[in-house]
């Protein structure tokens, strides 16, 4: 058995057995998807944070609530999550306030429920695709490992056909197989890092939204008197 002299990456991929090639293609696709979501989440989380900061600044600078509500309704496409929470709560509040025979406590509770519903929806939108990143991070090393194990099995089966067992006759097969693990790790490591980072960022945003909801409820309650 002649040793292949050329071990470029292309050679390694093309020489690999079919199963290993399928695994590598799968992992390449997963890696592509996960990087796409990483960038998308990165942009959206950054944007959500920026918008939250601008809205908080506007809100606590003591503007008129009605003006703020109007601008939020008119400019719905550019509104951030917190602005939408505010909008939902205030809309419910004005609606309930128009009805005469309602307990002030019920009015505040109603607007709080509306805010919570919007909050859930917003969190759902922010957290979308995070589960994908988490599963890529945990599973793709195993997929790569499967490809590697399969490739090494293949290499050793080839070894049994050679009378003289030399390192040179197994080495290329093992190198081919290890490419699968490399791709798996390349997909997994950024996915895990990004998942942890985004989960943390979104948690912080969630606490900000929740505390805003509480504070806004207090403001509404004061408005009742």
């Amino acid at each position: 058995m002649n040793v292949t002299q050329d071990l470029s990456i292309l050679h390694l991929i093309l020489q690999a057995s079919a199963v290993v090639q399928v695994v590598m293609a799968l992992l390449a696709g997963i890696s592509f998807m996960s990087w796409y979501y990483i960038f998308m989440k990165w942009f959206s989380v950054r944007q959500a944070r920026n918008k939250t900061e601008t809205f908080e600044r506007d809100f606590w600078s003591g503007g008129d609530l009605n003006n703020m509500y109007n601008s939020a309704v008119n400019d719905r496409h550019h509104a951030g999550s917190m602005e939408r929470i505010f909008e939902a709560g205030f809309r419910e509040f004005t609606k309930l306030k128009g009805q005469k025979n309602l307990d002030p406590k019920d009015i505040v509770d109603g607007s709080r429920r509306a805010m919570r519903a919007t909050y859930q929806r917003e969190m759902d939108a922010l957290e979308s695709h995070l589960a994908f990143l988490a599963s890529v991070g945990s599973v793709s090393p195993y997929i790569g490992l499967f490809g590697t194990v399969w490739g090494i099995m293949h290499a050793f089966r080839g070894l049994s056909n050679v009378g003289q067992a030399t390192l040179a006759s197994v080495a290329p097969g093992i190198a081919e197989a290890l490419v699968a693990t490399a791709i798996g790790l390349f997909a997994a490591i950024p996915a895990v890092l990004a998942y942890n980072r985004f989960a943390h960022d979104i948690d912080r945003l969630a606490t900000r939204y929740e505390s805003f909801m509480e504070e806004f409820s207090n403001i509404l309650q004061r408005q009742m008197r």
Binding site: Y37, M40, F43, S44, H77, A79, A88, A117
Partner: peptide
């Protein structure tokens, strides 16, 4: 109450970076 969901920002950028 139906809010039209805003588009996920920067899809094209994400694709390009990927």
């Amino acid at each position: 109450m139906i809010l039209d969901k805003p588009d996920e920002p920067g899809k094209k950028y994400a694709l390009a970076f990927t």
